[in-house]
Amino acid sequence: MKKIRTIIGKEWAEVFKNRLVLFSVIFLPLMLTILPLATIWGMSRFPASASSSVSTEEIEFFGDLCVGLTENECVMVYTLSLYTLLFMILPVMIPVTIAAYSIVGEKATRSLEPLLATPITDIELLTGKAIAAIVPAILATWLAYFVYAIGAVIMLGAELALAYVFAPVWVLAIFVVGPLMTFLSVSIAIMVSARVTDPRVAEQLSGLVVLPIILLLVGQSVGWVVVSRDMIYLIGVIVLILDVVLGFITVKSFQRETILTQWK
């Protein structure tokens, strides 16, 4: 247990001196908070056609999203759900940079060999590295979401904001599915990190874990899918299963000797 703490402390001491990591932990959430707030602000200042009701085509496109709303409100709510989905990129993207460096970074600086010579177990090492990546990612996501929510309340009024930004489905998405996704992306990034020889390759490969979310985002924005509560549940269950499976594989496939003696 103490060794896990040592590893976490070491990772944070080291990783937060790395500009690239700082950038991803600070800049990305910042951007994803400012962007939606700016959009809402813009929309609330220039309402499209204030009171016309939603047309039939629009009902088809938005599904049950807009029942009982004006067209303007509907567009806003739709935009918000799009952005909230965009928020799901955060818990996946932020930890990738940290986790992708975790093993291959130490290999590149040659600090892995003395580290593996200490009486630390694989589980302790991997747990420490994983937590070091997961915790800042989740905190940064929640903080960004919190700021975004406050901004939404101020601009939309509490009622609309509560109904859509804080809708239970999104709370579930951010506070439960998000962390599950973080674990998944960290598992993948560590696994990749243990297999490659170049830190940059590790980051680029691990970055691909964000693709499914982008697809979902594109799907929603062109109207193929509407992210509903059931869908979030489904995603949550799938991610949970993947978490268990990939977590297991990551630990099992951590072969000290192979990692240490990878030959170009």
Binding site: A13, E14, P114
Partner: peptide
């Protein structure tokens, strides 16, 4: 080890 592998930062 052959290379010291300190955490330089």
């Amino acid at each position: 080890t052959e290379t010291p592998g300190m955490y330089d930062r």
